[in-house]
Write a protein that binds this DNA or RNA. Structure first.
Length: 417
DNA sequence: TCTGGGGTCCTAGGACCC
DNA sequence: TCTGGGGTCCTAGGACCC
């Protein structure tokens, strides 16, 4: 049963191009939240040497010199475009796992006569229906499909197929580009002279097991064509949910800090309700000082609840208590976050013997009403005042394109002559 | 001046039990 | 004088992914 990996090309940039065809052929980049670093590049921007993850301010010069178009990230748009791509793929092949915002694994029929022709058909349909170009890799394991998709990106036809014997493909693939090999392992392998995916594949199993654990061994087996990773569950329920942001400007004031954390808490609560969960543990963290000194200036606190909840006012009440305990006057805060974990099915919450339940039928109706209003009219239509109105701390997004597909006020305009 | 946000899995080692 | 062996559970940290 071969796997196909469908990967959207330069996804965020491609989304911007759909609504702004004038960007075609131009260097374009998309920035991370808070306009911090580069997280997507058009081919033209890649050719200029702009690196993935590079801080924006460090490539200012090159951006000005070559008139690179710069966009703040617009996740409302990208999320909606992703849903369209995934819906299209689901129609073409129902046996699908949505792997990330811009990638999906498909499980193909064993007897598929011409995988390349099939892939080219998928590519054409997705492009026509959504405007998003994709690359497709097909192989006997997920890891080989990923490798094939990586190679396909550089091919004009955009589709690569490999059988179990993939040596001819693997010999030209950098070991760092193998799915499962991150920066640390890549550095270690290269220091030992292992440079390509093929050389990795041919290392002895016991060496891999010793130095790269069971996950590394699994990767190597998969390169050999032995499938170890099955298609995942599409209706995937997260085990923890986080909402965190860097602030658009420094925060000193307790009131502002409480506001920001309450806003993140309320977003996190929305997310767990959307997957039908309640949280039994709430954790917050506050980051101060320079973010470069990772690990420094981060304080955190967590609380186990007597009874799991998804009721926003209760979660806000708890996080405000925690912020109050962690806050130190005189500290400059840069970032904060809320993590909800110990997620359980909301219908199966264990009641506490000692505490009155916060999840009354009325509170549940209130949350359902809020969620449906926000879903119908857009996120943030109704919010808790505890999360702030002015929000002076909110992240920078100076160059965001309109939310063309998810906000009535921002629909694209078309003129007919 | 300025470096994102949101996840998962695995393992080693400590605490604790009998 | 002499001080075992075998478990489980939890947590922190490290690795990975996009």
């Amino acid at each position: 049963m071969p796997f196909a990996l469908v990967d959207c090309n330069n996804f965020y940039v491609s989304c911007e191009k759909v609504f702004n065809p004038g960007l075609e052929g131009k260097p374009v980049v998309v920035l991370s939240n808070n306009d911090g670093c580069i997280i997507a590049r058009s081919n033209e921007a890649k050719a200029l040497g702009i690196k993935m993850g590079e801080p924006f301010f460090r490539c200012r010069e090159i951006i000005q010199r070559y008139n690179v178009r710069v966009y703040s990230s617009n996740f409302s748009l990208y999320g909606d475009m992703s849903a369209r791509v995934m819906e299209t793929l689901g129609l073409l092949c129902p046996d699908m796992e949505i792997y990330s915002i811009d990638e999906a694994f498909l499980s193909l029929d064993k007897g598929i006569p011409d995988p390349i022709a099939w892939g080219m058909g998928v590519r054409k349909t997705v492009l026509k229906w959504t405007g998003v170009p994709v690359s497709i890799g097909i192989g006997p394991t997920k890891t080989l499909a990923k490798v094939a998709a990586h190679v396909a990106k550089a091919m004009p036809e955009g589709v690569v197929y490999t059988g179990a014997d993939a040596d001819a493909v693997l010999k030209d693939v950098d070991v760092a580009d193998v799915w499962g090999i991150g920066v640390k392992y890549a550095r270690k392998l290269k220091a030992m002279g292992i440079r390509t995916a093929l050389e990795l594949k041919d290392l002895p199993d016991n060496w891999i097991k010793r130095h790269m654990r069971s996950t590394g061994l699994r990767t190597v087996m998969e390169l050999k064509g032995i499938a170890c990773i099955q298609l995942g569950d599409v209706a995937f329920t997260k085990k923890s949910v986080m909402c965190s942001r860097s602030f658009g400007r420094d925060v000193h004031d307790l009131g502002e800090l409480e506001e920001a954390v309450a806003a993140y808490a309320s977003r996190a609560a929305e997310k767990i309700r959307a997957q039908g969960s309640a949280a039994s543990c709430i954790q917050i963290f506050l980051a101060s000082g320079s973010l470069r000194e990772t690990g420094h200036g981060i304080v955190s606190s967590s609380v186990e609840l007597p009874e799991a909840t998804s009721y926003t006012p209760e979660i806000i009440r708890m996080v405000k208590l925690m912020v109050g305990r962690l806050y130190r006057s005189g500290t400059v805060y840069k970032k904060a976050g809320v993590i909800l974990s110990g997620l359980v099915d909301r219908g199966k919450v264990q009641k506490s013997l000692f505490c009155p339940s916060r999840e009354t039928p009325a509170s549940q109706r209130l949350m359902e009403t809020m969620d449906s209003l926000n879903q119908r009219w857009g996120r943030g239509t109704i919010t808790f005042a505890a999360g702030g109105i002015e929000r002076p701390w909110k992240m920078r997004q100076a160059r965001r394109s309109p939310r063309f597909t998810t906000s009535w006020d921002e629909l694209p305009l078309a003129r007919a002559n």
